[in-house]
Every structure is written in structure tokens, then in C-alpha cells.
Nucleic acid binder design. Structure first.
Length: 480
RNA sequence: GGUGGCAUAGCCAAGUUGGUAAGGCAGAGGACUGCAAAUCCUUUAUCCCCCGGUUCAAAUCCGGGUGCCACCUCCA
């Protein structure tokens, strides 16, 4: 079985053929670090993480680059608003990015280049484009001449004429063609700038991704990911820049995730109807947020709401519950085991295999996480039915079969980036109130002179390392 | 105007090399339970926006229509 991926470039599902059998290269358009990222951005970071994890599951080594856009209009404006310098602003939100992606259980990329670290590489690329007559300079601005690039429009499946007719582009007298885009921007007074052959200025947005992707991944790499809104113009322009230089296809597979909507309307920073990911973390476990994001196919638009998250929470809990029961049974008192024949559980073993195959087939089919999760639910249902059987005998054959099921859940969890079993990360704040609660019960028991219960609470808490002291001022406790 | 996509039960949602509708949530019934909660099980679409066609067979293919969303301006 092999992985099939929908390629925006060809508008078809294609069988994945790695350039290098050993190592797959992925470039992801990362955030502009002027704010906390919102739940829509989160999707664009989780989806490539799923791709990466699944490729690793399939035995590939993955080399993944995520860039930070740390110089552009938004950065300049926000820095000014907040009265900080741009570097500080970038640093702050890069840190926030790492915190938030960590909580979403997104694996680290191999490198996180910043645009400002590659200014001279960007200048070099523009110089080549200028030499080859793909670019022209007007008063310190440098533009890419889209007419010079024959394939312009191939990603968004648009011809220049079509793009022009629907164009809402501002008329810029300097441009030869309204669709020409800025490679190098002449800086205004007070703006950050770098010296260049065209005077002081800064790079245009699209250029950095061409430069950084080829710098780290070479002139040919496997995947480029981003949100659908980046198809045009960002990725279209990136193709133009890169391929004008390489004269051959740079990216094999373009992956674009769908939007997150609010009440059917797209969520975006410009519309202001967005929720930052960390805002949502205050209400929901990051695992739930991740589960929500992958419970639908990555190319479909998804609606975001409190109700949807609540549904995701219940769905995830259901799976976790089953795995927990499984773990409990497996860890159960081994002495109680009765001899059992493995033949009895052959059916269950087959079932696990079937669901596993379904899971893999779903992931193979354009990363159909929704279907894959469905197979987990199906297995959970079967296991629960079995576990609920009152005359369930803990025979050795059953235990090893249940272990297979638990292994499968662990494996699936690794692919999906979810933890179904094990200790939940409980809020530390829970410990103190719990102990206080027990102490209150103990006090009540003492008042009723129920010394047995009171002592039991004290002794068993002591075993757990909680030492109780009855003082004149009341009950005190401490952790040993 | 161009381009891409969507329309499946109360809600969310999977499903095209055509073969007789996954899964989740809610609802209903039940198991368990001193009570409650939690948990678990069962159950819910004669039918997949509409019309027509191809076929032994279509949610899946073809033609036409309707509605919705996105991109064509910074946006994941």
C-alpha cells in the first residue's frame, strides 16, 4: 500500500514517490511572528505534522523546514503600535509559537529560518532574476515580470488574462503589468532596511520562501504545505521565482489545508473573527483541540465552535476510556489469570488486524484522518463490548490479544499525535484541593468519633507521602 | 467574469477503478448502580440538493439546474 496525496498543482490525488527513498523533504510556510497564532493557523501547522508523522510511520526519515516571516508590513506596524523594536516583537512571538505548537504536540522542525537571516541570499536571487530579465527595477523597487514566466498561473490554474480581469490589485504606475509583484521594496524613512544594489530596502514577502526553501532543501524537494489562501498569490509567485532560476520543477507535491470558519464565514486576522490558539487552550485541553482539527479531512473547510470542540472532547474521551480499560485489564492481577487458549481470541486478533488495515488505508488515502479515527472508534466499540462481558476470563491468550489492541492504539496515537493512554497531565492545582477534601472528611469522621475511618484516611495518605499533623491551629499537611 | 471546492440522518462527518450508506455527538431504550454521576451496549438515512441519462447495478459516471463557500488584495 502506498500513500496517495492530493497535489494542488495537478489537482489530482497522486501516488507519493519520494525523490530520495530515505529522506523526504517538507517545507511549511510558517507564521508571521507579529501575534499569537489563531486556530486557523494551528490547522496549517498540525496538518504537515500529520504528514510528517505518517511518513515516519511508513519508515521515511523526514527533513522539515518551517520559516518565520519576521520582516514585513505587519511586523513593522505592530512593532510601532506596541512601541517595541521588530526584533523584540519577533522574539516574543517565536517563543509563543514554540509554546503553542508544543502543547499541540507538533513535532519540531529541523530548522526554523527567519527571513532576516537570509537577506543576502534573497538579494542574490533577485540579482539572478534581474540578469535573466525576469525582474526589473523602478526607483529602488524591484518587480517580478509575470509575463516573462511562461508557466505563471499553473498552480492556481489561472491564465494571466483571467487573473487580470478579476483583479482587485491597486494600480501601481511603476508596474509593467498589474500582476507583477514586489521582490524588493524601497524602504521609507525610519523603516528597517538593508543595503542592496537597488538602494536601501527590504525583501518582498514571496521571495523569502523561495530562497529559504531552496537554501535548506535544494532545488528539488518533495512537499510544500500551507493554507489554501496561499495558493494565490504566494505560492504561485514562489513557483515563478524559484523556477525562473532553476528552469525545472522545484516542488513535487503542493499540499493545502482548508480554512477554519466561524459560522460559515472564514476566520482570519483581517476579519477580526478569530480565536488565538492559546485562548482556546484556556478552555480545552490542547489534545482536544488537535483531535478537533484532525477529525475532519484536511482539505475540507471546518466550522469552529464551542459545540464542535465539546463533541471532539467527548469523542477523544471515549477512545481514552477504552484504552484505559484495556490498560487496566492488562495490568490487572496476573495471578488471577486462567489458562486460556489463543484459539479463542483469534477472532479478536483478526478484528484488530482489520481495523489496523483500515486505519493505514485511510491514512494512505490522502491522509484521511477522519476515517482513520473512525476505525479506532469501531475497534473501541468491539473491545468495550468484550470487556463488558460479565464472564470475561482473564486468560493469558486474552491478555496478549488485548496487548495487541493497546499497541495498535499507541501506534495510531503516535501517527495522529495523540496520547490515548497513560497519565493525563493533571493540573497540579488539583492535588491540594483533593487533600483538603479528604482532610475535611477526616475531620467530620473525628467529630463523629469514627476513628477507624479517620485513621484509615491518615494512614493511607501517609503511604502516599502526605503527612498529616493535628495541631492546635488545625490540621496541617505536607508532602514528603 | 475566471478558478477551486462543497451540498449525505437533528447536528458534525467518511464514502468515485459504480455493487446496494463508516464513525462521532445529541435523542430513545437497556445494563450497571443504595441514590446520582460516570461508564458501557442497542437503536436512529428505503436513501445521499433537484431533473434527466448511461448501466443488471449510481451517493458514486455523464448532461442540465439550484444553493453555499473560498481564491483572484495582506491572510493558514
Amino acid at each position: 500500500m502506498s500513500l496517495k496525496i492530493y497535489n494542488t498543482l495537478t489537482r489530482k490525488k497522486e501516488e507519493f514517490q519520494p525523490i530520495d527513498e530515505e529522506q523526504v523533504k517538507i517545507y511549511t510556510c510558517g507564521p508571521t511572528v507579529y501575534d499569537y497564532f489563531h486556530i486557523g493557523n494551528a490547522r496549517a501547522f498540525v496538518i504537515p505534522d500529520i504528514l510528517k508523522r505518517y511518513l515516519e510511520y511508513k519508515g521515511y526519515q523526514v527533513f522539515h523546514i518551517v520559516n518565520f516571516t519576521d520582516i514585513d508590513d505587519k511586523m513593522i506596524n505592530r512593532a510601532e503600535e506596541e512601541g517595541v523594536n521588530i526584533e523584540e516583537l519577533a522574539e516574543r512571538f517565536i517563543e509563543a509559537y514554540f509554546e503553542d505548537t508544543k502543547r499541540l504536540n507538533i513535532k519540531k522542525a529541523d530548522a526554523y529560518p527567519k527571513a532576516t537571516e537570509h537577506i543576502y541570499d534573497i538579494i542574490e536571487l533577485i540579482e539572478i532574476l534581474e540578469e535573466e530579465e525576469y525582474a526589473y527595477e523602478v526607483d529602488g523597487d524591484v518587480f517580478f515580470a509575470v509575463k516573462q514566466f511562461e508557466d505563471y498561473g499553473k498552480l492556481s490554474n489561472q491564465s494571466l488574462e483571467e487573473l487580470a480581469s478579476g483583479s482587485r490589485v491597486d494600480i501601481n504606475e511603476k508596474k509593467r503589468n498589474p500582476l507583477d509583484f514586489v521582490l524588493w521594496k524601497n524602504s521609507k524613512a525610519g523603516e528597517p532596511s538593508w543595503d542592496s544594489p537597488w538602494g536601501a530596502g527590504r525583501p518582498g514577502w514571496h521571495t523569502e520562501c523561495s530562497v529559504m526553501s531552496m537554501f535548506y532543501l535544494g532545488r528539488k524537494f518533495d512537499f510544500h504545505t500551507g493554507g489554501v489562501d496561499l495558493v494565490f498569490p504566494h505560492h504561485e509567485n514562489e513557483i515563478a521565482q524559484s523556477e525562473a532560476v532553476t528552469e525545472s520543477q522545484v516542488v513535487n507535491y503542493w499540499l493545502h489545508n482548508g480554512y477554519i470558519n466561524i459560522d460559515g464565514e472564514k476566520m482570519s486576522k483581517s476579519l477580526g473573527n478569530f480565536f488565538t490558539t492559546r485562548e482556546i487552550f484556556a478552555e480545552y485541553d490542547p489534545q482536544v483541540v488537535r483531535f478537533f482539527l484532525i477529525s475532519k479531512h484536511y482539505r475540507s473547510p471546518i466550522n469552529f465552535s464551542d459545540a464542535e470542540l465539546a463533541v471532539a472532547q467527548k469523542g477523544l474521551e471515549r477512545l481514552k476510556n477504552t484504552v484505559q480499560r484495556l490498560d487496566n485489564l492488562i495490568a490487572g492481577d496476573q495471578q488471577e489469570l486462567k489458562p486460556g487458549s489463543s484459539v479463542e481470541y483469534e477472532e479478536l486478533t483478526e478484528l484488530i488486524e482489520t481495523k489496523k488495515k483500515k486505519f493505514v488505508a485511510a491514512m494512505d488515502d490522502d491522509l484521511n484522518t477522519a476515517l482513520a479515527i473512525g476505525s479506532l472508534h469501531e475497534l473501541a466499540k468491539e473491545l468495550n463490548t468484550l470487556i463488558n462481558t460479565s464472564d470475561l476470563q482473564l486468560a493469558q491468550g486474552l491478555i496478549s490479544t488485548l496487548e495487541k489492541a493497546a499497541d495498535f492504539f499507541a501506534e495510531a496515537g503516535e501517527v495522529l499525535g495523540l496520547e490515548f493512554s497513560g497519565e493525563e497531565i493533571k493540573d497540579d492545582n488539583l492535588v491540594a484541593p483533593l487533600i483538603e477534601l479528604l482532610l475535611k472528611i477526616r475531620s467530620e469522621a473525628r467529630e463523629e468519633q469514627n476513628w477507624d475511618l479517620a485513621d484509615q484516611i491518615r494512614d493511607e495518605l501517609a503511604e502516599l507521602g502526605v503527612k498529616i499533623e493535628d495541631t492546635a491551629q488545625g490540621v496541617e499537611w505536607k508532602l514528603e
